[in-house]
């Protein structure tokens, strides 16, 4: 018994200290300046890709004016966040918030592998991490509608967008990730919505009702409430399918080498 007591004491001491090792807060330390410039996306009507009924395929929804980051969040930006919010360092983050590939491309918890990465979009970040970053800045992830609306660019840069998409989507990922801002912005002044990385949205998986995403529009009433089936309004827009399929394959704790994010902000009326 004596020996047992000796053994217990060192074990217990850390836990008798006031610092609780495991607590993780979503509310975080206030941010600094030097964050990506944001542009105002003027509101308008927009035809979402998935509708509950095909008879509504021309129905347009209203997207209110909002602010969107002009660039994806970079490693440099995210590094600042991690330094100020230690629970988001690679070695500390809860597995439930990010799988073990979180920030695997960084050298250590607080250093990058090389200078080039500073201006590359941050990748290997989960939805929880991306959300926390945006909320740290008083913003949020854009909704899928906001993101797609910004890409649509009221049809202004359709050609350039399509070319960039085709080029990026069809080439496998064996090349070094590009830096932000290397290509022209679209009509809103937003860069790199396509061509660099996929991007998280607030509601990334709510438009997919079927995991296999063959968009056969069949209802699965046992699995889903309300309409439960969504139909693609334009089944020849295969590039949009690719984006929605990708989003549908994700879970919130996932990270991938090709997935980053940017932030958005509601404009006060």
């Amino acid at each position: 018994m004596f020996i047992v007591h000796i053994n217990l004491l060192p074990f217990l001491l850390p836990y008798l200290s006031p610092t609780v090792a495991a607590a993780q807060a979503i509310e975080t330390v206030a941010p600094q300046k030097n964050h990506p410039t944001a542009v105002v996306i003027k509101g308008g009507t927009y035809r979402p890709f998935y509708r509950p009924r095909l008879s509504e395929s021309d129905k347009r929804i209203v997207v209110k004016s909002f602010e969107l980051d002009a660039h994806p969040v970079t490693n440099q930006d995210y590094l600042e966040f991690v330094k100020k919010n230690t629970q988001f360092t690679r070695s500390q983050i809860g597995r439930v918030f990010a799988e073990d590939t979180y920030l695997k491309h960084w050298q250590t918890d607080h250093t990058l592998k090389n200078e080039k990465e500073l201006k590359q979009p941050v990748t290997h970040v989960s939805w929880f991490a991306a959300t926390a970053y945006c909320q740290w800045l008083g913003k949020d992830l854009p909704t899928t509608d906001q993101w797609e609306y910004a890409l649509d660019d009221v049809g202004r840069s359709a050609k350039a967008t399509k070319a960039a998409i085709l080029k990026w989507y069809s080439v496998p990922n064996n090349q070094e990730l590009g830096q932000i801002g290397q290509h022209k912005a679209n009509g809103y002044g937003v860069h790199d919505l396509v061509g660099l990385v996929w991007e998280w949205t607030q509601d990334f998986n709510n438009s997919a009702t079927s995991a296999e995403l063959r968009s056969d529009g069949t209802k699965d009433e046992n699995l889903f409430c309300a309409s439960g089936s969504l139909n693609a309004v334009d089944s020849s827009d295969y590039v949009k399918f690719m984006r929605f399929s990708f989003r549908g394959s994700l879970q919130a704790a996932f990270t991938t080498a090709n997935l980053g994010f940017r932030c958005a902000k509601e404009l006060t009326p």
Binding site: A22, Q24, I26, E27, G94, R95, V96
Partner: peptide, 12 residues
């Protein structure tokens, strides 16, 4: 005791 890393109770 620390909440396990894979527990949803890590949420605040």
């Amino acid at each position: 005791q620390p909440i396990p890393k894979n527990s949803i109770y890590l949420s605040k």
